[in-house]
Amino acid sequence: MTNQADATQGRRRPTAGADTPRGHEVEVLISNLLRIGVATSLVVVVLGTVLSFVHHPDYLTSPKELERLTSPGAAFPRTLGEVIAGLRDLQGRAVTVVGLLMLVATPVLRVAVSILAFIHQRDRMFVLITTTVLVLLLLAFALGKVEG
């Protein structure tokens, strides 16, 4: 279906929205994407936490060491290179950071999938709006910086 004027009735025909079978499929796809993204990131964060405690069992017995891990100045990887190096060494902190990045990326991916759905539905206005949202999200990530 398109969002063009119906010549015989003088009305606009609706686009494929949530009330159509295809619209429902898109909603289910996006819902599953969000669920899977959040669940996967949770598993990765838990795995990173477990790895941290396996590599540093003193976190379980020494409150001072645990406080060092959880303090705001804790040495978590802050750059992509540090994350990759930490993953190679199976560092729990690096794995936890990957899980958190996956959690942040999940709604961004949802916006990207929405753009594809709107392109498929030929809804140019929502393609433009959603693309603008995605560009602003990516720009915010690119311009953001870590305080420390």
Rank of each mutant, 00 (worst) to 15 (best):
V98K: 05
A142K: 08
L29R: 10
T61Q: 10
F76L: 00
S41N: 05
A39W: 03
A16N: 13
T40Q: 06
L69S: 00
S41K: 06
Q9L: 15
T40F: 06
P107D: 03
T70S: 02
E25Y: 09
L143C: 06
M125C: 03
V98P: 07
S62C: 04
Q9Y: 13
G81Q: 05
V97F: 01
R22L: 15
T2P: 07
H55V: 01
I119T: 04
F118R: 09
A142R: 11
T20I: 08
T20C: 12
G81I: 03
V98L: 15
F53H: 12
F141Y: 11
V43M: 05
R93A: 09
M1F: 11
L42M: 12
D58K: 05
G99T: 12
T130Q: 08
E82A: 08
F53M: 10
V97W: 00
V28F: 05
L42Q: 06
A105W: 14
T70W: 05
Y59Q: 07
A105Q: 06
R110C: 11
F126P: 01
A18Y: 14
V26P: 00
T2Q: 14
G23R: 13
A142T: 08
G99N: 13
L47D: 02
A5F: 06
R93Y: 02
T70C: 01
A18N: 10
L42K: 02
D89L: 10
T20N: 03
V46P: 10
G48Q: 00
L87H: 08
A140G: 15
V83T: 09
E147N: 12
L66A: 00
T131C: 02
I119H: 09
H24W: 08
V46T: 11
V26T: 12
V127N: 09
Y59C: 03
L90H: 12
Q121V: 14
L29C: 06
G10H: 07
V111F: 01
P72N: 06
G86S: 11
R93L: 09
R35S: 09
E25T: 06
S62K: 02
V50A: 07
P77M: 02
D58Q: 15
P14V: 12
G99S: 09
V54H: 03
K64G: 02
A112C: 07
G81H: 08
D89G: 07
E82D: 11
G92Y: 14
L116G: 15
T20L: 11
L138S: 05
S62P: 05
L101I: 08
T61V: 14
V146T: 13
H55K: 12
T40V: 14
S41H: 02
R68E: 10
L134W: 10
M1H: 07
D123Q: 03
V127M: 01
H55I: 00
G86T: 11
T96Q: 11
R12A: 09
V38A: 11
G37L: 08
